[in-house]
Design a protein around this nucleic acid. Structure first.
Length: 310
DNA sequence: GCGTCCAGGTCTACC
DNA sequence: GGTAGACCTGGACGC
């Protein structure tokens, strides 16, 4: 459906979803929805995102739930949104919401545990991800060793200062070359990335020069252990960050513990008393390839009781 | 308003 | 292989 709006054209695409898909449960599956180019519009009840298409078009899309088996993506553009662009955007929407990932084994596994049957009932587990692995890795690097407020500052600065300008005052996520073209001093001073600056520069340079193909990680046939080693090979990505990047690649074997998860875990199981990582790992060991997803869902269970948990 | 302390992951040097 | 210290920012706290 296309309709003219002055010089702007509005295009709406309908995307089918798996049965019982929870749009807001996926949007709020972790903190990404609060980091640009994502933006939650609570009044309009949309998730707005900026997508960079392969032909260079920058598309601002508003995603909205149309019930349990459909969502819509509304794009406002200055030129007609062609069929190939619609197809590419549909694929990107499916990818960020993880609509094509098969969770049937996961739900079969958790349904064997009375304490986890709610996971199966609510059909949760799809973790929101960025359109590109590069964006996910950069953002994950910006979550390390700092408060969430500082993560937000770094990602806001990255997009507003280096990202391409889109409609509605939004910016897309910067391409690797845009970051690689900056100086260490700029990244420290204006992005507030501090000591992460050389790590961001090295990563962006390797990606921009084609020496590192991050996008291939999503379809890699390598074992999870091997992929973990590759992810850890990026400077600035340690155990925590690598474990969580793997979750966004559809591999859930690593817990990806940080201070927040450790705190939630100790509150839930040890009355707030600190426990070792080994103790936490022991509890989830029996869940094998799903342990990383189970611990995350368990620690964020209260988020699923509200449409907008934060 | 200013100075000090601390929390937050990762890397590197050292044992 | 394990450990200590440095890295940098922002918030909390005391003065």
């Amino acid at each position: 459906m296309d309709s003219s709006l002055g010089t702007l054209i509005t295009t709406t695409i309908t995307v089918s979803t798996p049965p019982q898909f929870g749009f807001w449960r996926t949007v709020y599956s972790h903190g990404w929805c609060a980091l640009p180019p994502f933006r939650v519009d609570k009044k309009e009840e949309t998730l707005d995102c900026v997508f960079s298409l392969s032909d260079g078009t920058l598309a601002v899309a508003s995603l909205r739930s149309l019930g349990q088996d459909k969502i819509s993506a509304t794009i406002t553009s200055q030129s007609p949104f062609s069929a190939p662009r619609k197809k590419e955007l549909t694929q990107l929407v499916r990818s960020i919401l993880r609509l094509d990932e098969d969770f049937s084994d996961f739900y079969r596994h958790v349904s064997r545990y009375p304490d986890y049957r709610w996971i199966c009932r609510m059909r949760v587990g799809r973790l929101l991800r960025a359109p590109t692995v590069f964006e996910d890795v950069v953002k994950m690097m910006c979550t390390t060793n700092c408060s969430w407020a500082l993560t937000t500052t770094m990602v806001n600065n990255l997009t507003s200062l280096l990202g391409p300008a889109a409609d509605a005052g939004l910016h897309g996520f910067p391409a690797a070359a845009s970051i690689a073209g900056q100086t260490d001093a700029f990244i420290r001073k204006y992005l507030r990335a501090g000591y992460r600056a050389p790590y961001l520069l090295e990563l962006s340079d390797r990606v921009a020069s084609g020496k590192l193909d991050l996008e291939s990680w999503r379809t890699s046939a390598a074992s999870t252990e091997e992929l973990f080693r590759q992810v850890r090979g990026v400077k600035g990505i340690g155990e925590y960050a690598a474990g969580n990047i793997l979750k966004l690649l559809g591999r859930y074997d690593y817990l990806g513990l940080d201070s927040w998860v450790r705190g939630k875990y100790s509150e839930k199981y040890h009355s707030g008393r600190r426990v070792s990582d080994t103790t936490i790992e022991r509890r989830y060991r029996e869940h094998g390839q799903w342990r990383g997803l189970i611990i995350w869902l368990e620690m964020t269970r209260d988020w699923f009781t509200k449409k907008f948990p934060f």
